[in-house]
Design a protein around this nucleic acid. Structure first.
Lengths: 150, 150
DNA sequence: AGCCAATGTTGGCTCAACCAACGAAAAGGA
DNA sequence: TCCTTTTCGTTGGTTGAGCCAACATTGGCT
Protein backbone atom coordinates (compact mmCIF):
# COMPACT_ATOMS: atom_id res chain seq x y z
CA UNK A 1 0.00 0.00 0.00
CA UNK A 2 1.49 3.26 -1.16
CA UNK A 3 1.69 5.95 1.51
CA UNK A 4 -1.02 8.54 0.97
CA UNK A 5 -3.10 8.21 -2.14
CA UNK A 6 -5.27 11.11 -1.16
CA UNK A 7 -2.77 13.89 -0.99
CA UNK A 8 -3.49 16.85 -3.18
CA UNK A 9 -0.81 18.18 -5.51
CA UNK A 10 1.00 21.20 -4.12
CA UNK A 11 0.33 23.42 -7.13
CA UNK A 12 -3.34 22.94 -6.45
CA UNK A 13 -3.39 22.95 -2.65
CA UNK A 14 -1.48 26.21 -2.43
CA UNK A 15 -3.71 28.26 -4.71
CA UNK A 16 -6.13 30.62 -3.00
CA UNK A 17 -8.74 29.99 -5.68
CA UNK A 18 -8.52 26.28 -4.92
CA UNK A 19 -8.70 26.77 -1.17
CA UNK A 20 -11.66 29.09 -1.39
CA UNK A 21 -13.68 27.05 -3.84
CA UNK A 22 -13.01 23.77 -2.05
CA UNK A 23 -13.84 25.20 1.33
CA UNK A 24 -16.96 26.66 -0.21
CA UNK A 25 -18.07 23.13 -1.04
CA UNK A 26 -17.97 22.28 2.66
CA UNK A 27 -19.52 25.59 3.66
CA UNK A 28 -22.33 25.02 1.22
CA UNK A 29 -22.89 21.47 2.36
CA UNK A 30 -22.96 22.41 6.03
CA UNK A 31 -25.38 25.29 5.62
CA UNK A 32 -27.58 23.38 3.16
CA UNK A 33 -27.88 20.47 5.55
CA UNK A 34 -28.81 22.85 8.31
CA UNK A 35 -31.42 24.59 6.20
CA UNK A 36 -32.86 21.26 5.11
CA UNK A 37 -33.50 20.38 8.77
CA UNK A 38 -36.11 23.12 8.88
CA UNK A 39 -37.33 22.69 5.32
CA UNK A 40 -35.55 25.67 3.86
CA UNK A 41 -32.78 26.53 1.45
CA UNK A 42 -30.10 29.13 1.06
CA UNK A 43 -32.10 31.54 -1.04
CA UNK A 44 -34.82 31.61 1.63
CA UNK A 45 -32.40 32.76 4.28
CA UNK A 46 -31.10 35.48 2.02
CA UNK A 47 -34.57 36.85 1.44
CA UNK A 48 -35.80 36.55 5.02
CA UNK A 49 -32.72 38.08 6.60
CA UNK A 50 -32.75 40.95 4.13
CA UNK A 51 -36.39 41.65 4.87
CA UNK A 52 -35.74 41.50 8.59
CA UNK A 53 -32.89 43.96 8.42
CA UNK A 54 -34.19 46.45 5.87
CA UNK A 55 -37.93 45.97 6.10
CA UNK A 56 -40.33 45.49 3.21
CA UNK A 57 -38.64 45.88 -0.14
CA UNK A 58 -39.26 45.45 -3.79
CA UNK A 59 -38.02 42.22 -5.30
CA UNK A 60 -35.37 44.08 -7.24
CA UNK A 61 -33.97 45.58 -4.05
CA UNK A 62 -34.05 42.19 -2.37
CA UNK A 63 -32.00 40.82 -5.20
CA UNK A 64 -29.44 43.59 -5.04
CA UNK A 65 -28.97 43.34 -1.32
CA UNK A 66 -28.83 39.57 -1.08
CA UNK A 67 -26.83 39.20 -4.28
CA UNK A 68 -29.42 37.28 -6.21
CA UNK A 69 -30.63 37.46 -9.76
CA UNK A 70 -34.10 38.95 -10.20
CA UNK A 71 -35.41 35.72 -11.62
CA UNK A 72 -34.17 33.73 -8.65
CA UNK A 73 -35.83 36.19 -6.31
CA UNK A 74 -39.14 35.48 -8.02
CA UNK A 75 -38.86 31.76 -7.36
CA UNK A 76 -37.72 32.17 -3.76
CA UNK A 77 -40.45 34.69 -2.94
CA UNK A 78 -43.01 32.38 -4.53
CA UNK A 79 -41.97 29.55 -2.26
CA UNK A 80 -41.79 31.74 0.83
CA UNK A 81 -45.21 33.19 0.06
CA UNK A 82 -46.68 29.70 -0.35
CA UNK A 83 -45.28 28.84 3.07
CA UNK A 84 -46.75 31.99 4.56
CA UNK A 85 -43.38 33.48 5.49
CA UNK A 86 -43.66 36.56 3.31
CA UNK A 87 -46.44 38.55 1.71
CA UNK A 88 -46.44 40.13 -1.70
CA UNK A 89 -48.50 43.28 -2.14
CA UNK A 90 -48.50 45.69 -5.05
CA UNK A 91 -46.79 49.01 -4.41
CA UNK A 92 -49.42 51.76 -4.83
CA UNK A 93 -46.70 54.33 -5.49
CA UNK A 94 -45.11 52.33 -8.29
CA UNK A 95 -47.23 49.84 -10.08
CA UNK A 96 -44.27 47.96 -11.45
CA UNK A 97 -43.22 46.94 -7.99
CA UNK A 98 -44.27 44.39 -5.44
CA UNK A 99 -43.59 45.13 -1.82
CA UNK A 100 -42.48 41.99 -0.06
CA UNK A 101 -42.95 41.92 3.71
CA UNK A 102 -41.99 39.52 6.44
CA UNK A 103 -44.83 37.81 8.30
CA UNK A 104 -44.86 36.70 11.92
CA UNK A 105 -44.36 33.12 10.84
CA UNK A 106 -41.52 34.29 8.61
CA UNK A 107 -39.77 35.95 11.52
CA UNK A 108 -40.04 32.74 13.53
CA UNK A 109 -38.68 30.73 10.62
CA UNK A 110 -35.79 33.17 10.39
CA UNK A 111 -34.97 32.49 14.05
CA UNK A 112 -34.87 28.79 13.34
CA UNK A 113 -32.65 29.34 10.33
CA UNK A 114 -30.29 31.50 12.36
CA UNK A 115 -29.89 28.74 14.88
CA UNK A 116 -29.06 25.96 12.46
CA UNK A 117 -26.86 28.28 10.45
CA UNK A 118 -24.96 29.24 13.57
CA UNK A 119 -24.12 25.61 14.15
CA UNK A 120 -22.88 25.36 10.57
CA UNK A 121 -20.44 28.21 11.24
CA UNK A 122 -19.02 26.38 14.21
CA UNK A 123 -18.54 23.22 12.24
CA UNK A 124 -16.95 25.03 9.34
CA UNK A 125 -14.38 26.81 11.49
CA UNK A 126 -13.97 24.03 14.03
CA UNK A 127 -10.17 23.84 13.84
CA UNK A 128 -9.65 27.58 14.35
CA UNK A 129 -9.32 29.48 17.60
CA UNK A 130 -11.55 32.44 18.28
CA UNK A 131 -8.97 34.99 17.26
CA UNK A 132 -8.10 33.11 14.10
CA UNK A 133 -11.76 33.03 13.14
CA UNK A 134 -11.95 36.78 13.52
CA UNK A 135 -8.85 37.22 11.39
CA UNK A 136 -10.23 34.96 8.70
CA UNK A 137 -13.55 36.79 8.66
CA UNK A 138 -11.74 40.11 8.45
CA UNK A 139 -9.58 39.06 5.52
CA UNK A 140 -12.45 37.43 3.66
CA UNK A 141 -14.63 40.48 4.20
CA UNK A 142 -12.01 42.84 2.85
CA UNK A 143 -11.42 40.67 -0.18
CA UNK A 144 -15.09 40.14 -0.91
CA UNK A 145 -15.77 43.84 -0.48
CA UNK A 146 -13.17 44.58 -3.11
CA UNK A 147 -14.87 42.37 -5.67
CA UNK A 148 -18.32 43.65 -4.80
CA UNK A 149 -17.25 47.13 -5.88
CA UNK A 150 -15.51 46.21 -9.09
CA UNK B 1 -32.45 58.29 -3.95
CA UNK B 2 -32.10 56.12 -0.88
CA UNK B 3 -28.56 55.79 0.42
CA UNK B 4 -27.12 52.39 -0.41
CA UNK B 5 -29.44 49.88 -1.92
CA UNK B 6 -26.71 47.34 -2.38
CA UNK B 7 -25.63 46.79 1.16
CA UNK B 8 -25.81 43.24 2.39
CA UNK B 9 -27.60 42.45 5.65
CA UNK B 10 -25.22 42.06 8.57
CA UNK B 11 -26.47 38.62 9.56
CA UNK B 12 -25.48 37.43 6.14
CA UNK B 13 -22.29 39.40 5.58
CA UNK B 14 -20.80 38.28 8.87
CA UNK B 15 -21.25 34.56 8.39
CA UNK B 16 -18.15 32.63 7.36
CA UNK B 17 -20.23 30.31 5.17
CA UNK B 18 -21.50 33.36 3.30
CA UNK B 19 -18.08 34.92 2.93
CA UNK B 20 -16.52 31.72 1.71
CA UNK B 21 -19.24 30.79 -0.76
CA UNK B 22 -19.53 34.29 -2.15
CA UNK B 23 -15.81 34.69 -2.52
CA UNK B 24 -15.76 31.30 -4.18
CA UNK B 25 -18.05 32.70 -6.86
CA UNK B 26 -15.38 35.27 -7.70
CA UNK B 27 -12.56 32.76 -7.39
CA UNK B 28 -14.36 30.43 -9.72
CA UNK B 29 -15.12 33.14 -12.22
CA UNK B 30 -11.54 34.40 -12.27
CA UNK B 31 -9.96 31.00 -12.72
CA UNK B 32 -12.55 29.88 -15.26
CA UNK B 33 -11.99 32.97 -17.34
CA UNK B 34 -8.27 32.31 -17.24
CA UNK B 35 -8.67 28.69 -18.23
CA UNK B 36 -11.00 29.65 -21.05
CA UNK B 37 -8.26 31.84 -22.54
CA UNK B 38 -6.28 28.70 -23.30
CA UNK B 39 -9.26 26.49 -24.08
CA UNK B 40 -9.32 24.61 -20.82
CA UNK B 41 -11.45 24.19 -17.73
CA UNK B 42 -10.93 23.58 -14.04
CA UNK B 43 -11.12 19.82 -14.19
CA UNK B 44 -8.34 19.78 -16.77
CA UNK B 45 -5.97 21.62 -14.48
CA UNK B 46 -6.74 19.25 -11.65
CA UNK B 47 -5.88 16.24 -13.76
CA UNK B 48 -2.79 17.68 -15.42
CA UNK B 49 -1.25 19.04 -12.23
CA UNK B 50 -1.88 15.78 -10.41
CA UNK B 51 -0.22 13.82 -13.19
CA UNK B 52 2.71 16.20 -13.21
CA UNK B 53 3.28 15.89 -9.50
CA UNK B 54 2.63 12.20 -8.95
CA UNK B 55 3.30 10.71 -12.36
CA UNK B 56 1.09 8.30 -14.25
CA UNK B 57 -1.86 7.16 -12.20
CA UNK B 58 -5.05 5.21 -12.48
CA UNK B 59 -8.17 7.27 -12.96
CA UNK B 60 -9.38 6.35 -9.50
CA UNK B 61 -6.21 7.71 -7.93
CA UNK B 62 -6.49 10.85 -10.01
CA UNK B 63 -9.95 11.36 -8.66
CA UNK B 64 -8.91 10.87 -5.07
CA UNK B 65 -5.98 13.22 -5.29
CA UNK B 66 -7.71 15.98 -7.19
CA UNK B 67 -10.98 15.61 -5.31
CA UNK B 68 -13.09 14.58 -8.24
CA UNK B 69 -15.77 12.00 -8.70
CA UNK B 70 -14.73 8.98 -10.76
CA UNK B 71 -17.31 9.76 -13.41
CA UNK B 72 -16.04 13.31 -13.79
CA UNK B 73 -12.51 12.00 -14.18
CA UNK B 74 -13.69 9.90 -17.10
CA UNK B 75 -15.06 12.92 -18.93
CA UNK B 76 -12.03 15.11 -18.23
CA UNK B 77 -9.55 12.43 -19.28
CA UNK B 78 -11.58 11.85 -22.44
CA UNK B 79 -11.28 15.50 -23.36
CA UNK B 80 -7.61 15.71 -22.45
CA UNK B 81 -6.87 12.57 -24.45
CA UNK B 82 -8.71 13.98 -27.46
CA UNK B 83 -6.53 17.08 -27.21
CA UNK B 84 -3.40 14.95 -26.97
CA UNK B 85 -2.51 16.16 -23.47
CA UNK B 86 -2.74 12.77 -21.77
CA UNK B 87 -2.55 9.14 -22.84
CA UNK B 88 -4.63 6.28 -21.58
CA UNK B 89 -3.01 2.85 -21.57
CA UNK B 90 -4.26 -0.34 -19.93
CA UNK B 91 -2.36 -1.42 -16.82
CA UNK B 92 -0.84 -4.86 -17.50
CA UNK B 93 -0.62 -5.55 -13.77
CA UNK B 94 -4.29 -4.83 -13.13
CA UNK B 95 -6.63 -5.14 -16.03
CA UNK B 96 -9.32 -3.06 -14.38
CA UNK B 97 -7.08 -0.03 -14.46
CA UNK B 98 -6.03 2.50 -17.03
CA UNK B 99 -2.74 4.26 -16.52
CA UNK B 100 -3.06 7.88 -17.48
CA UNK B 101 0.17 9.67 -18.39
CA UNK B 102 1.07 13.24 -19.23
CA UNK B 103 2.32 13.92 -22.76
CA UNK B 104 4.82 16.57 -23.84
CA UNK B 105 1.99 18.68 -25.19
CA UNK B 106 0.17 18.16 -21.90
CA UNK B 107 3.14 19.47 -19.94
CA UNK B 108 3.25 22.56 -22.12
CA UNK B 109 -0.47 23.11 -21.66
CA UNK B 110 0.02 22.80 -17.91
CA UNK B 111 2.59 25.58 -18.06
CA UNK B 112 0.12 27.79 -19.85
CA UNK B 113 -2.55 26.98 -17.30
CA UNK B 114 -0.19 27.79 -14.45
CA UNK B 115 0.45 31.19 -15.90
CA UNK B 116 -3.16 32.25 -16.35
CA UNK B 117 -4.07 30.72 -13.02
CA UNK B 118 -1.33 32.71 -11.33
CA UNK B 119 -2.85 35.91 -12.61
CA UNK B 120 -6.21 34.83 -11.24
CA UNK B 121 -4.68 34.49 -7.77
CA UNK B 122 -3.39 38.03 -7.91
CA UNK B 123 -6.74 39.38 -8.95
CA UNK B 124 -8.55 37.44 -6.27
CA UNK B 125 -6.33 38.69 -3.45
CA UNK B 126 -5.70 42.11 -4.92
CA UNK B 127 -6.68 44.09 -1.79
CA UNK B 128 -4.45 42.08 0.56
CA UNK B 129 -0.82 42.69 1.42
CA UNK B 130 1.67 39.89 1.02
CA UNK B 131 1.62 38.93 4.67
CA UNK B 132 -2.15 38.98 4.80
CA UNK B 133 -2.29 36.66 1.82
CA UNK B 134 -0.02 34.22 3.59
CA UNK B 135 -2.19 34.38 6.70
CA UNK B 136 -5.33 33.80 4.70
CA UNK B 137 -3.81 30.83 2.88
CA UNK B 138 -2.64 29.38 6.17
CA UNK B 139 -6.05 29.65 7.81
CA UNK B 140 -7.88 28.31 4.79
CA UNK B 141 -5.46 25.42 4.50
CA UNK B 142 -5.89 24.43 8.12
CA UNK B 143 -9.65 24.60 7.86
CA UNK B 144 -9.84 22.71 4.60
CA UNK B 145 -7.46 20.07 5.92
CA UNK B 146 -9.80 19.49 8.82
CA UNK B 147 -12.74 18.78 6.56
CA UNK B 148 -10.71 16.62 4.21
CA UNK B 149 -10.03 14.23 7.08
CA UNK B 150 -13.52 14.06 8.49
C1' DA C 1 -44.71 63.19 -26.92
C1' DG C 2 -40.89 60.27 -27.07
C1' DC C 3 -37.14 57.65 -25.38
C1' DC C 4 -34.64 55.18 -22.00
C1' DA C 5 -34.49 52.68 -17.58
C1' DA C 6 -36.47 49.77 -14.19
C1' DT C 7 -39.59 45.93 -12.70
C1' DG C 8 -41.53 41.31 -12.45
C1' DT C 9 -41.81 37.19 -14.82
C1' DT C 10 -40.92 33.23 -17.90
C1' DG C 11 -37.89 30.14 -19.72
C1' DG C 12 -33.93 28.96 -20.61
C1' DC C 13 -28.54 27.72 -19.98
C1' DT C 14 -23.90 26.15 -17.80
C1' DC C 15 -21.11 24.04 -14.57
C1' DA C 16 -19.51 21.71 -10.33
C1' DA C 17 -20.78 18.18 -7.40
C1' DC C 18 -22.67 14.05 -6.72
C1' DC C 19 -25.13 9.42 -7.02
C1' DA C 20 -26.69 4.75 -8.68
C1' DA C 21 -25.87 0.96 -11.32
C1' DC C 22 -23.36 -2.04 -14.25
C1' DG C 23 -19.86 -5.61 -15.86
C1' DA C 24 -15.21 -6.80 -15.42
C1' DA C 25 -11.57 -7.85 -12.62
C1' DA C 26 -8.94 -8.25 -8.35
C1' DA C 27 -8.48 -9.28 -3.36
C1' DG C 28 -9.39 -11.71 0.61
C1' DG C 29 -11.51 -15.07 3.74
C1' DA C 30 -13.55 -19.66 4.80
C1' DT D 1 -10.60 -23.90 -3.83
C1' DC D 2 -14.99 -21.46 -3.82
C1' DC D 3 -17.35 -17.42 -2.46
C1' DT D 4 -17.87 -12.85 -1.05
C1' DT D 5 -16.45 -8.25 -1.10
C1' DT D 6 -14.11 -4.56 -3.09
C1' DT D 7 -12.29 -1.82 -6.72
C1' DC D 8 -12.29 0.13 -11.37
C1' DG D 9 -13.96 2.38 -15.46
C1' DT D 10 -18.01 3.81 -17.51
C1' DT D 11 -22.82 5.37 -18.53
C1' DG D 12 -26.44 8.07 -17.41
C1' DG D 13 -28.52 10.53 -14.66
C1' DT D 14 -29.93 14.65 -10.70
C1' DT D 15 -29.41 18.83 -8.05
C1' DG D 16 -28.47 23.67 -7.10
C1' DA D 17 -26.22 28.11 -7.72
C1' DG D 18 -25.36 31.53 -10.80
C1' DC D 19 -26.55 33.44 -14.85
C1' DC D 20 -28.72 35.66 -19.29
C1' DA D 21 -32.27 37.06 -22.77
C1' DA D 22 -36.69 38.52 -23.80
C1' DC D 23 -41.06 40.45 -22.91
C1' DA D 24 -44.83 43.57 -21.37
C1' DT D 25 -45.74 47.03 -18.08
C1' DT D 26 -44.67 51.18 -15.90
C1' DG D 27 -41.81 55.37 -14.48
C1' DG D 28 -38.68 59.00 -15.15
C1' DC D 29 -36.62 62.42 -17.98
C1' DT D 30 -36.34 65.90 -21.37
Amino acid sequence: MVADMEQTPARLAGKPTWLVTQLAVHAHRLSSEGFAEVGARGYHYRILSTLDEFGGSSQADLGRRSNMDRSDVVAAVNQLADLGFVERTPDPADRRRNIVTLTEAGARQLDRLDEVLGRAQDELLAPLAEEERATLVRLLTRTLEHHRNA
